[in-house]
Design a protein around this nucleic acid. Structure first.
Length: 807
DNA sequence: ATGGGGACAGTTTTT
DNA sequence: CTGTCCCCAT
């Protein structure tokens, strides 16, 4: 049924083993520092490699794998090595190849958790009621499915949005909870119907022969737990297990690993508790903190020598992260002395911050800052939230500074690409109802809600898929004139495409193909597939015949040309695959869009996106309480959230090789509303001796808003005691530039409390009346332009005192 | 069936 | 201030 014969596969692997067997010299060990070497040479038994940022983690990991093979402990296909991202997996493959002189072709079990699980699940799908040809749904499909269930359950989809349910279900799956196992407070979730809907969703997925991302792991854990024979087979097969970014594993991944490692305990987990920043999507720092308890007798190796950043940058990062409790503890050091201190600067508002950074980037690239020039590719701006990017994009567009945004919507997530792929899915599997729904009226075929509902009903009554439902409905004449012709055409098209695919590859159309056949490729010595590009022509035909291309050609909106361009890209991407199904499988798991490094551009990305990367120059803007650390994180997860934010700051700073700038603004527009901001509490935690306070050019005496702000805030906070202490105090005391008077502009530090309705004055917004209070902010109705704004009270003066405030 | 407008919400993101 | 989603009028 599955088309896989495991025994053959594994025997084949045994017979293929020779070339990796001969022991070789170990030149790769020479390039390692003592702790790296220790981590590489401790091959047997549990090992925890605590690898700080920039300490050569990948080097150690890949050397370890090379060493395992070189010492004949395992063949390439007996090593299970998991990463989180495809990028990381790719990099490891490349580096192992380099280490061993390209001698090893396949490491079939080196991949992401998800891709390894797909491979496994395809072989054992029937154990969880699936066929081996199951499809992998993405978030969009997931939401659509859930919405249907919510509506079917007679729930108000406004009050109970599918997104929220999706989040809940993902959360459960991350914790390896099947619907029956959901318990405790979770039972009350989603109007007490969460687990019920979860069960329905799982049933629906099974009926569709589909899984979502979470299922890939959950199903494998279930299989391992309920089929000891299957588990022990893999426990024996995978002689060594390596895990990258262990701090990011969730409960399901953790269980999966433990189950597999239980036998021989040859597991090496690499990670850095200080870089755990994915708690919000289920990662459990606890996994790494608990490692020694889980695997008694584990060897713990710390990689602490950093090869990336200057002393000052490392010290600043270390100072910050020391504010966290419950760390495993690690201190980064570098053999290289000197370097630039971390630079700290405040600005009046977000726009000014963007302007200043733009100018600084230019200056650095021209080498006019007393350092070697840093070209634009060497510089990055790392933000907490993607909306912060906007100010920079606006600014860079006006000054014509080339920039690149990393982490926007990825290629395969774009509407037109997803539509096109739904067409492909339908051509391959006409029973794919979700694909059918997606494209049935795309382009418009006069088949609106009513018609689609009729198709649904007919399909359900006859127990067939939507395409067949449509067929029946047409026979019955259940569709009116205009739509009928179009629908007939649509059905005929899908049939024709499907026939082409079946004719081309009757075998692969039933069993999965492509990426996950790595194992067989290894075994069969990787016969390169014949590329006759028939699927390219088919793909083009599908997009043309369906009228999809025409739809965008006729579209006059500005984004239409780009979308057509993307469709062309899509066809081009197909070239690297043998057939459409191989491509879809790849896309379902890969979803990344490696754009080639063309011209020099400044990089703009989120802190999360920057993990694992490094740049000579890094700008960290928006260090303001509420933005960073994010208010939401703190509200939702309290101290845990704050600590994760702090780790995020640590990740940010440690991205920098030579120069790191931290900045904040006193005022920022949030959702169209101006708000005053406190400097981030993290600023206060930066060790002063490694920080240089900059005076922004063009602002007298070191920052208009800042100095004013400083003295005011300090006072206010002591009273309000909302936040422990903003960084300004230290910033000010360590500042080297001339200081402005403590109470400039005649504003008295103690004018903080106002009555509702009182007339007040603000330097930027003018006169207004106090409307109330929101948390620690004052809500003021301003008289001229702008209406209500939330402000820190210290910025506001009673109107009668404002008489002599100079502007 | 479709598109315009009003209501509403609004981190971080991989697979 | 955006962008998204849904409802309602055409």
């Amino acid at each position: 049924m599955t088309g896989f014969d495991e025994d053959d596969a594994f025997e084949g692997a045994v017979s293929l083993s020779h070339q990796a067997m001969a022991a070789r010299p170990t030149p790769y060990l020479d390039g390692l520092n003592p702790s790296q070497r220790e981590a590489v040479e401790a091959l047997d038994g549990p090992v925890l490699m605590l690898a700080g940022a920039g300490t050569g983690k990948t080097k150690a990991l890949t050397c370890r794998i090379a060493h395992l093979m070189n010492t004949n402990r395992a063949r390439p296909n007996e090593i299970l090595s998991v990463t989180f991202t495809n990028k990381a997996a790719r990099e490891m493959k490349n580096r192992i190849g380099t280490l061993l002189g390209g001698a090893i072709e396949g490491m079939p079990w080196l991949g992401t958790f998800h891709s390894v699980c797909v491979k496994l699940l395809r072989r054992h799908a029937e154990l969880v009621g699936l066929k081996s040809s199951f499809t992998i749904l993405d978030t969009d499909d997931q939401i659509r499915l859930l919405k249907q269930l919510i509506v079917a359950a007679n729930m108000d989809e406004k009050r109970w949005p599918a997104r929220q349910l999706a989040g809940l279900i993902d959360g459960w799956k991350n914790k390896a909870l099947t619907p029956e196992k959901v318990s405790g407070g979770d039972t009350a979730a989603f109007d007490n119907r969460g687990s019920e809907l979860y069960a329905q969703y799982q049933a629906r997925l099974r009926a569709l022969n589909a899984v979502d991302f979470g299922d890939l792991l959950l199903h494998m854990v279930t299989i391992f737990q309920t089929h000891p024979d299957v588990l022990s087979q893999y426990q024996r097969w995978f002689k060594y297990i390596l895990v990258d970014e262990y701090q990011d594993t969730n409960v399901a991944q953790y269980m999966w690993l433990r189950l597999l490692a239980q036998g021989h305990r040859n597991i090496c987990c690499v990670g850095d508790d200080d870089q755990s920043i994915y708690g919000w999507r289920g990662a459990e720092v606890g996994n790494i903190l608990r490692f020694e308890r889980d695997f008694p007798g584990a060897k713990v190796v710390r990689l602490e020598q950093n090869y990336r950043s200057t002393e000052h940058i490392l010290a600043a990062a270390s100072g910050l992260i020391q504010g966290n409790e419950g760390r495993l503890g690690k201190t980064l050091w570098t053999a290289v002395e000197g370097g630039e201190k971390l630079r700290l600067i405040g600005h009046w508002d977000g726009e000014e911050e963007a302007r200043w950074i733009g100018e600084e980037i230019e200056a650095l690239s021209r080498g006019t800052r007393g350092m070697k020039p840093f070209d634009l590719n060497a510089q990055a701006i790392l933000v907490r939230a993607s909306h912060q990017m906007r100010a920079f994009e606006d600014r860079f567009l006006t000054i014509g500074m080339p920039y690149r945004v990393i982490g926007g919507p990825r290629f395969y997530e774009r509407l037109e690409i997803r539509d096109a792929m739904a067409y492909f899915r339908l051509a391959i599997t006409p029973e794919d109802d979700l694909a059918f729904e997606r494209v049935i009226n795309q382009p418009k075929r006069g088949l609106g809600n009513k018609a689609q509902q009729n198709i649904q009903i007919t399909a359900r009554e006859n127990g067939v898929c939507l395409l067949d439902g449509a067929r029946i409905l047409l026979q019955q004449g259940g569709i009116s004139g205009k739509g009928a012709g179009q629908l007939r055409q649509f059905v005929a098209n899908v049939d024709r495409w499907h026939d082409v695919i079946m004719d081309a590859s009757p075998a692969t159309a039933q069993s999965p193909a492509g990426d996950e056949d790595d194992l067989f490729e290894v075994l069969e010595d990787a016969v390169p597939p014949a590329h006759d590009h028939a699927h390219l022509r088919l793909a083009e035909e599908i997009l043309e015949d369906s009228g999809y291309v025409a739809m965008w050609q006729n579209d006059k909106t500005p984004e239409a040309p780009g979308r057509l361009e993307n469709l062309k890209e899509l066809i081009k991407a197909l070239e690297q695959f043998e057939n459409l199904q191989g491509f879809l499988e790849h896309v379902a798991l890969i979803m990344d869009n490696e754009s080639k490094e063309e011209d020099a551009k400044v990089t703009l990305m989120t802190l999360h996106g920057a993990k694992g990367l490094e740049f000579p120059v890094v700008f960290l803007p928006g260090w303001e309480d509420g933005l960073f650390p994010s208010q939401r994180s703190m509200d939702e997860s309290g101290l845990k959230g704050l600590e994760e934010e702090r780790r995020l700051g640590y990740v940010g700073i440690t991205r920098a090789e030579d120069v790191c700038y931290v900045s904040f603004a006193g005022n920022r527009r949030v959702y169209g509303q101006w708000q005053s901001q406190f400097p981030s509490r993290f600023i206060d935690e930066l060790p002063p001796s490694h920080v240089e306070v900059l005076t922004p050019p063009g602002l007298n005496g070191g920052g208009y808003g800042m100095q004013t702000l400083g003295s005011q805030i300090d006072d206010r906070v002591a009273k309000a005691d909302v936040y422990n202490s903003p960084g300004w105090r230290r910033l000010q005391s360590r500042g080297t530039q001339p200081q402005t008077p403590k109470t400039p502009n005649g504003i008295k530090p103690d004018t903080i409390e106002f009555d509702v309705g009182e007339r007040v004055f603000h330097k930027k917004f003018g006169y207004g009346h106090v409307a109330g209070q929101d948390g620690d902010k004052l809500v003021v109705d301003f008289e001229k332009g702008g209406g209500q704004k939330k402000l820190i009270a210290a910025y506001v003066v009673a109107a009668e005192e404002a008489g002599d405030v100079p502007f």
